[in-house]
Design a protein around this nucleic acid. Sequence first.
DNA 1: GTCTATACGGGGATAGAC
DNA 2: GTCTATCCCCGTATAGAC
Lengths: 192, 192
Amino acid sequence: MYGQEVDKRERLIESTRELLWERGYVGTSPKAIQERSGAGQGSMYHHFQGKSDLALAAIGRSAEDLRARAEAEFSGPGTVVERITVYLRRERDVLKGCPVGRLAQDPDVMADADLRKPVEEFFGWLTGRLAELLDEGRAAGDLDAKLDPLATATVLVAVLQGGYILARAAGSPDVFAKAVDGALGLLATKEN
Amino acid sequence: MYGQEVDKRERLIESTRELLWERGYVGTSPKAIQERSGAGQGSMYHHFQGKSDLALAAIGRSAEDLRARAEAEFSGPGTVVERITVYLRRERDVLKGCPVGRLAQDPDVMADADLRKPVEEFFGWLTGRLAELLDEGRAAGDLDAKLDPLATATVLVAVLQGGYILARAAGSPDVFAKAVDGALGLLATKEN
DNA sequence: GTCTATACGGGGATAGAC
DNA sequence: GTCTATCCCCGTATAGAC
């Protein structure tokens, strides 16, 4: 269906994902995308209608990636608390931040319903999924019975997103780890 | 020292603060600043050396504002937990996000040591101050003796910053409130 | 499919008049 | 102090050749 040399369409999407991660939507130009992907103007406008169309493909793929990786950890072995810990402590490019979360700060992404949708859906899914797990853990007696699953799930997601911000502000990934440790410490009421 | 008509220098700074809040540094142009402030090219380049110089003044003022407001709440009446609750639950423009935190996502701000400094200092101060309070509350017996003050302070700041992101992603301030409630719920171990 | 040429307004800043 | 004129490169996109 597409050309031979490693597929320019593919490279355009991947380069856009990188740039959106590094510089956000507002800070990413078609020219920069072309340079990084090795594709020219014509190629980009042949495969995509324009910047926003290409960004849509890139964002959708990034969101799906994050979802799939999280789901693999959530449905892995171990108790609920263990699986959540694996997810929270997974190795991350902390100083680069969250490739999807950073888009929530971008005015032009939030102003466009199509671009915004995958961002909204990803966080909706993630929070809901964590709430299910927490509820399960509560039923199994691994977590405090008084714990509110949805509110706590929201805390966990917020701690990750906020942890990225604090780490970037400090210029060090340690702050991110501190936030995760603190959150896990607060969760571990049961062992008190 | 300056002209009469409400001080263009002042209006330039305030307009820049607004635009940085709404669109970030990368998304804010000198032209937009001039239009919003009612000042012309000449006026802007007379008072400031350029975009980054003006942004420095704007960011410094925003950071100092946040610091002063937080300190007023931290040193107010009530127990430590009450004061922290007042701070966390203060009315906020949730969907606009944190005027200082959003800059941590901006590549051009983080790449410039001068612009980055006030951001780093603000979060350093905030986390440290909250850690002091938590330590005090632990000593007073209002908080679990096993609680780690610094890690927990980091969690609280991260929950706010992450809460803003989740609220923007969802298009609703409710998620922010949910995160704050969840965090306060986890803190309230003592009443178990 | 991909390239080059071209277009037009905007970003960021300087020059010099008032 | 503030304004207008001007500069140059970039952002975003279209046209048309190969």
